[in-house]
Design a protein around this nucleic acid. Structure first.
Lengths: 358, 358
DNA sequence: ACAAAAATTGTTATCGATATCATCTTGCCG
DNA sequence: CGGCAAGATGATATCGATAACAATTTTTGT
């Protein structure tokens, strides 16, 4: 006979609810741990009767599966990492919702991280995420630190970049051209007769989508022969409603004859409109203002704001779908670019008749 | 001699970047895996020289620590779970920021989940989180399913409930009385002469904070002898700007002489104000409207909205701090209630002089 | 200069589930 | 009724790091 282990010296602290493991559940039911493990997966071969008994025991004991142990041995962490610039931006939250919906029923969980529009923060987050071994990762934008790129390459998992069209994609891309979208808005407004264009955006290149919108604006105004646009930069992205208000004051001081102002987002457009209203100017009678992103506020406020509607939800949904494709096909897929839609939404704030309450 | 293992049959797939482990880094540097492990923690005793060499190797090889293995053996997952109702609500995102800030430098990461104001979704999320063995968990509100409560009890980790004062706290609480806050707003407005009070909120009890605000409203209006309040319920929480607009229409149809309307949140208040404006009513001249939460929009829009400012950031910060306390003191702390502040912010939308642009 | 203390590094067992292969039933068919 | 396939279950090794303790080197005090 082999010598039996003495009762272990493991001192369970008094109040310490001894931690339940699968083995204990197994002993309780009278099966092996492996069978309990199988009972937790619907594809595994366990008789219905045994599974039922196990699940009852799980319930009775209050056992909760331990994925950290499971993922170590199965080498599947069971989650997808997604990094977005801001927690509090309905555009990105719509995108996140799209991802969550697409991942439903796949057994994969979404882990969100917030980069605060900073590539350094993004790098940190990528490292933090990779340490937990995600099965794939979704990023916003195409601007990353060199080290971030290296880590991603090394990680050998599918990567999807979203919300823009990077010049040098890592892997897959789901997004649209922010500069083209802004160009479309400029051309649409120009075709309505506007000639003197102003632009409000943040000061730095941190927000790459913002920069792209700006360059789309600039380029298109010049292409249309409407001279260089009047551009005001204000604040570190993401610029707030308040900064939108401050910016339009600067802009109108410098170029009082401006006819229409395009803003990097609806939020700054809203701030600008409110500031104008407060100063006794009527929008669009005295000045027209447009935003970008089609946030809820733009269809509610007075006057309603002309904007670019972006398929935020679709971006998320498709990004997750592309990622799942890559995971299923064994990541042999070519790196594709999936274009998502956008459209101009004309509303009161740029109405040439200037009769917003019409 | 024992038979030596044949060179393993492990077929590394062609493109497969063979997964790096600590052992390989260790071999590369010429130390033991344990020393590499130590090099990753700043408190461990490794000579500076060795650590430098190891970190260079880590960099050169592109190794990324594997926490799923580490947390299994150390029994420390290194993260805190936090569940909030909505991803896209600046109040909660401020709270989340408070938590993140408080956890900075503690080595603990925050994992956010979104319950969508549903206790069923919350239960699912709690289970999903517990499966990854968080070291603590922060919840919003005090309303949970029985199974959620059981799982939390079994998990034996500190729990903090936030944003309200539950009748039956699980453990620690960081929040304030929503009904008292709303009562304060009612009393403040009553003291300014308002007599005929209306209220706009969601239809169900899903949003417990909303329900508490409603009951605070109702109770106080009656206490002041101003008769039963005029209450309109509209939509499933969280109610949107648009629903705020629809609600005020119903309310004014039913009770056209209402003097002031309190809304469950600033967002519905904003929607209500815009709808009034659109219909040619002036706020506050024709009707006064107030919100709750002091969102950015309320200080920007026109007219600016009277509201209750809540210390959202502080709630998050303190919740995380209390959790850290509990973790450090070995969870022997008594379950305390930490009250957070709120205050009435009077703005144009309830100005009795009705001269918002004054 | 030598013992004691401190700092550094290594060895081995282990965390809790799952992959893998082995074993045991059961059912089915000619 | 033998034999084989399919289904159900179990035994064991393993995932990759870290805890715990052991061994070694360096520093310190007197």
């Amino acid at each position: 006979m082999k010598n039996e282990d003495e009762p272990k010296d493991k001192r369970l602290k008094p109040g310490d609810a001894q931690k339940l493991t699968m083995a204990e559940v197994a002993k309780y039911v009278g099966v092996s741990a492996m069978t309990v493990s199988r009972a937790f997966r619907q594809d595994a071969s366990v008789s219905e009767e045994t599974r039922k008994r196990i699940m009852e025991a799980v319930d009775a004991l209050g056992y909760v599966l331990d994925l950290s142990a499971g993922s170590l041995s199965s080498r599947r962490s069971g989650f997808i990492a997604a990094l977005v610039p801001s927690i509090n931006n309905s555009n990105f939250s719509d995108t996140a919702r799209g991802m969550t919906d697409a991942l439903e029923k796949t057994g994969l969980q979404l882990l969100l991280g917030y980069t605060d529009y900073s590539t350094e923060k993004e790098e940190e987050l990528i490292e933090a995420m990779l340490r937990r071994r995600p099965e794939g990762i979704i990023l916003t934008g195409g601007s990353h630190t060199p080290r971030a790129r290296r880590m991603l390459a090394q990680a050998d998992i599918p990567v999807v970049e979203t919300w823009e069209l990077p010049e040098d994609p890592i892997n897959q891309v789901v997004g649209f051209s922010n500069s083209e979208a802004m160009a479309l808005l400029v051309r649409t407004l120009a075709s309505q007769g506007y000639r003197k264009f102003g632009y409000i955006g943040g000061t730095t290149a941190r927000d790459t989508r913002g920069s792209q919108r700006r360059s789309g604006f600039q380029r298109t105004v010049e292409e249309l022969g409407l001279g260089p646009g009047r551009m005001i930069s204000f604040g570190v992205p993401p610029i707030t409603m308040e900064q939108g208000g401050q910016a339009i004051v600067s802009l109108l001081e410098r170029w009082p004859d401006t006819e229409v102002v395009l803003c990097v987002s609806d939020l700054s457009a809203f701030g600008a409109i409110m500031e104008c209203t407060r100063r006794g100017m009527k929008v669009p009678r005295d000045i027209a203002i447009a935003g970008f992103g089609d946030y809820e506020i733009s269809s509610i406020c007075h006057p309603r704001i002309t904007t670019i509607n972006v398929d935020c939800y679709g971006i998320g949904r498709q990004a997750a779908a592309r990622l799942l494709d890559a995971l299923h096909t064994g990541e042999a897929t070519g790196d594709e670019i999936t274009l998502t839609g956008y459209k101009v939404v004309l509303r009161e704030s740029t109405d040439r008749n200037g009769a917003p309450t019409a």
